[in-house]
Simulated assay, not measured.
Amino acid sequence: MKSRLVSEVDGLRTFVLVMDKEDEAVERLTAFSREHRVTGAGLTGVGACRDATLGYFDAERKEYLDIPVGGQSEVLSLIGDIADDDGRPALHAHVVLGHRDGSTAGGHLQRLTVWPTLELVITETPAHLRKRVDPDVGLALIALDATDGPGGS
């Protein structure tokens, strides 16, 4: 994986990541976020993969049910965020994968093996838009009361 800091304005950074063949996207993103101390950011991406595991959040069980996706797919859309979970980055991303016949599969990104590339943009968010993991729900949610910010009350 290659990465580059492409912008830094008022302490908020924007990175571009280009993943290589066989990179496991979730592992790479989590390691990158930890290494660069990214604990609040949005992310987008496009590319392709040779297999993936997506998830569907079961609200009653408060856990993701696996959706295995085998074979080559286009990453049509990857969007999500990186939140703070007790000082550690927590990735929450959704992905839509396109298949050869034009059908799609979508869900929470749990695992994705890149083939041949995955291009991502990570943009840090200001402190007043940071997410925190809500233990009652089990998901990262925007915590408007976590810090004061513009327009906050």
Results as ranks from 00 to 15, higher is better:
17 L>P: 00
129 L>R: 15
52 A>H: 02
25 A>M: 01
74 E>F: 15
113 T>M: 13
52 A>F: 02
78 L>W: 00
102 G>V: 06
65 L>C: 08
133 V>C: 10
7 S>H: 01
28 R>Y: 09
131 K>N: 13
87 G>N: 05
73 S>E: 08
66 D>P: 11
121 V>T: 15
47 G>C: 01
103 S>T: 15
48 A>C: 07
141 L>S: 11
37 R>C: 02
131 K>R: 15
60 E>H: 09
30 T>R: 00
129 L>W: 05
67 I>N: 06
21 K>V: 08
142 I>W: 14
82 I>Q: 08
105 A>Q: 13
116 P>W: 00
96 V>T: 11
101 D>E: 11
101 D>A: 13
103 S>Y: 13
122 I>P: 09
118 L>N: 09
5 L>T: 06
2 K>V: 05
53 T>Y: 09
51 D>S: 10
110 Q>T: 00
133 V>D: 05
62 K>W: 07
85 D>Y: 15
143 A>Q: 11
119 E>Y: 10
143 A>F: 00
27 E>F: 14
29 L>A: 02
87 G>D: 04
88 R>Y: 10
23 D>I: 01
133 V>W: 07
144 L>H: 12
33 S>A: 09
134 D>K: 11
60 E>L: 09
64 Y>M: 02
1 M>I: 12
113 T>L: 12
33 S>M: 03
37 R>E: 05
44 T>I: 10
51 D>P: 02
67 I>V: 08
58 D>S: 03
139 L>D: 13
75 V>L: 07
80 G>Q: 07
78 L>Q: 09
28 R>V: 14
82 I>V: 01
132 R>Y: 04
37 R>I: 02
27 E>H: 14
